[in-house]
């Protein structure tokens, strides 16, 4: 670079720096904790709206949830919180600070389809009624509507941040919203079948993740 060019660049950026300093105002730091609170509030809101309309499982209403409900609730909650935490942390970027712990929770949630497959391979007949279960539409409808509310709130919060990998943020936002939205539905889901959870819960989470990947990045561009 010539000396003349350097002088021109220096002059241009010096006047820019003057104007940026003149424009300085105190800012409130974007805290990850606030992002998590936003996600928690949206999840609670989805529950508060859907539970009175569609009802809760009797065992959940009696505060004595069955084993399958505890297991799938735990898997969905862990996956949702881990994915939400990973994407919230990415709103304050830093080379070398990417969090990938959420992958383990996805692996844990995959135990449901793996168990379903193992049972079938072991000779247990697959309950084909699951494909035509009338509750499947409700499962997808409630899960994805809740996911939409949670994902919208999370995306709105992320827009204040500095997401440098928007595609990854899209996947994670969709995954978090899908897992938490399906968690909300699972509290009212009458089925206790592991095959049902593997198929319909899995489908709801996958659809939400794909929608997140398609929709969220364009809303996060700087």
């Amino acid at each position: 670079m010539s000396k003349a060019n350097r002088v021109m660049i220096s002059t241009a950026t010096s006047s820019q720096i003057d104007s940026l300093v003149a424009d300085l105002a105190p800012v409130r730091r974007a805290k990850a904790r606030t992002g998590l609170l936003v996600v928690a509030a949206a999840t609670l809101l989805a529950f508060a709206v859907t539970a009175p309309i569609f009802g809760l499982r009797p065992d959940v209403a009696a505060l004595h949830p069955s084993e399958i409900v505890l297991l799938r609730s735990g898997a969905l909650l862990l996956m949702g919180v881990a994915a939400a935490w990973a994407v919230i942390a990415s709103s304050s970027p830093g080379v070398g600070s990417r969090r990938d712990g959420w992958r383990w929770t996805v692996a844990a949630a995959l135990l449901f389809p793996v168990t379903s497959l193992a049972l079938v391979l072991g000779g247990t007949p697959f309950p084909t009624w699951i494909f035509s279960a009338s509750s499947a539409a409700w499962c997808l409808g409630i899960s994805l509507t809740s996911a939409l509310a949670i994902g919208s709130a999370l995306t709105a919060w992320l827009r204040r941040g500095a997401v440098t990998e928007p595609d990854r943020a899209g996947w994670l936002t969709g995954l978090a919203a899908g897992a938490l939205g399906t968690f909300v539905y699972n509290l009212g889901c009458s089925s206790s079948s592991v095959h049902y959870a593997a198929l319909w819960y899995g489908l709801a989470v996958v659809i939400s993740a794909v929608v997140g990947r398609l929709v969220v990045p364009r809303n996060l561009r700087w």
């Binding site: 800012v27 409130r28 730091r29 974007a30 709103s91 304050s92 970027p93 830093g94 080379v95 070398g96 600070s97 204040r160 941040g161 500095a162 440098t164 700087w222």
Partner: peptide
């Protein structure tokens, strides 16, 4: 525009570098 996203408890350069790479 994104100065509110910096966390002063973390190193500055990796934050600046992530924005620069982006």
């Amino acid at each position: 525009a994104k100065r509110a996203t910096y966390d002063p408890s973390r190193p500055f350069l990796p934050w600046l570098a992530a924005i620069a790479r982006y």
